[in-house]
């Protein structure tokens, strides 16, 4: 990934910090923000590194540690809870062999929880990368994960 190419698409004003961070993380294989990338952003934008660190760690969509190639984010808000999100979370933990917040050994998946995804009419729901999946059942979850596994293997 050429970080310079990403950064230089934007002007230095501070209001471009979050868009730049989104782009860099998206282009990084393990979907996280590395130290050296933050330093490069700080230099370009002339913002203290500490401030950038503060911004990065505030938002749930950014990560400072390596994650899987696919990020699974399961909604745990009330509408999904009511329709059985807890069972779905347990099923995902069993299928992937990891707990919430962890990454599989093969670095293919990270399991995260999220607040409302805004597709509550098809609760329970989850988002894998930028794809939404709703009306989840145990069978459907297995099928979806199998689909991603085939894709990466």
């Amino acid at each position: 990934m050429d970080i310079k190419a990403i950064i230089s698409k934007y002007d230095p004003p501070e209001e471009n910090l979050i868009p730049i961070l989104h782009d860099i993380q998206e282009a990084t294989e393990l979907k996280y923000l590395k130290d050296e990338d933050l330093v490069a952003v700080a230099d370009y934008m002339n913002i203290p590194l500490s401030e950038i660190h503060g911004t990065v760690t505030f938002y749930s969509m950014f990560s400072r540690t390596p994650r899987g190639r696919h990020i699974i984010r399961v909604c745990e808000s009330a509408p999904c809870h009511l329709m059985g999100a807890t069972t779905i979370i347990q099923a995902l933990e069993a299928i992937l062999g990891i707990k919430v917040g962890e990454t599989t050994k093969d670095k293919n998946f990270t399991l995260e929880l999220t607040a409302c995804l805004g597709i509550c009419a098809v609760a329970p729901a989850m988002m894998i990368d930028s794809e939404m999946h709703g009306n989840l059942t145990l069978e459907k979850v297995k099928e979806i994960i199998d689909g991603y596994r085939k894709e990466v293997s």
């Binding site: 808000s77 009330a78 509408p79 607040a115 409302c116 805004g118 597709i119 509550c120 009419a121």
Partner: peptide, 11 residues
Amino acid sequence: DEGEPGTFKDR
């Protein structure tokens, strides 16, 4: 920034 659980009208 519609984030209130159960809300997707703005979307």
